[in-house]
Each structure stands twice: as C-alpha cells, then as structure tokens.
C-alpha cells in the first residue's frame, strides 16, 4: 500500500469476532499489510494484540507495535530508521467532539527494531503493550460497522532532510 504523506490507515473488520476469540481466551494477534512511508521510503507494518483476560499486567488491553519490513528502497535509505511515529485508534463519530486515542513515539536508533531488516519482517517491533483498554474502546465510537480504524503517521528524518 503506498502512502499519502506518510499516513496509513489499517481497517480491521469483523472486530467483534476478534473480541469473541479473546473472551474465549484464544490469543488474538494480527498484522497489517506492509506499507511505505513515502516514495522512496521505509516499508513498515503494524501488529495488534488483544491481550487475554488473564494476562499479567496487561489484561484486556490492545497492544500496538510497528515493525520494519524489507522494502524496495532499503539500499538507498539511511539506517537505522529515525523519525517520529504517531499511532492512533480513530474516533469514528461525527461532530466536533471527535477525539482519537493516540500516542506519539520517537524511534530509538540504537534498538534492533529500527535496524535494516535482514528477513521479510524484523522480528523486533516497537510500540505499546497497553495502548488502549477494551473498556476505553466503548467510551467513544472507536468501533463502527464492526470495524476498527488504526492510523499510523510517520515523519521520517528523511522527510525533514529532503
């Protein structure tokens, strides 16, 4: 999936099916398709967990991570990846009081998660174990037509230099 200025929207449909699996204590881990931060740009993907009700410290939380992937521009890009990543779960309500749930994180170039991937997807990701609690999802229209929208907005050091 290509980008419009470094923003990617991941549509997660049949979200109630994932919640049912979690309630039945079945692990829920899904990955987004790979997407590029630009042309040229880094190839990334997202990983989402719905933590089980009996998980230590993070029970019933949605975890959200970013992984680097092998991309077609890798040999022309500076490594490690440096930049700012904003992760959001979008409030799908109409009206002015719409409020996304979001976190902004700075890439840490010393971490393996931001080194150039040597296999299809870097096994190391970076993000939040406790991104949002399932109860918080109910407080706004984060789920509409049984679909959750996760947005990833990437501002790479590359963009800043160019």
């Amino acid at each position: 999936a290509q980008q419009c200025n470094g923003i990617y929207i991941w549509k997660i449909e049949n979200f109630s099916g994932l919640q049912r699996a979690q309630e039945e204590e079945r692990p829920v881990v899904i990955h987004s398709p790979g997407f590029y931060t630009g042309k040229p740009g880094y190839k990334l993907c997202l990983r989402l967990h719905i933590q089980l009700p009996n998980a230590q410290r993070c029970a019933n939380f949605i975890s959200l991570f970013v992984h680097t992937m092998q991309g077609e521009y890798d040999s022309h890009l500076p490594w490690p990846f440096q930049g700012t990543i904003r992760l959001s779960i979008l409030d799908q309500s109409e009206g002015p009081e719409r409020q996304n749930h979001e976190e902004v994180m700075e890439a840490k170039p010393e971490l393996l998660a931001f080194q150039r991937p040597t296999i299809h997807r870097n096994p190391k990701g970076f993000g939040y174990v406790t991104f949002i609690h399932l109860q918080t999802l109910k407080q706004r229209t984060f789920i509409k037509d049984d679909t959750l929208l996760v947005r990833c907005e990437v501002q790479t050091r590359l963009d800043l230099n160019s």
Binding site: R47, F65, H67, E103, M105, A113, K124, G125, F126, F131
Partner: peptide, 12 residues
Amino acid sequence: FPPVPTEDEYMD
C-alpha cells in the same frame, strides 16, 4: 501516566 513504548519481539 501515558504508556511508554518498548521494544517487543514477535515471530510467526
């Protein structure tokens, strides 16, 4: 307090 991002390993 806002959550702190961490590195997390996952392999299929």
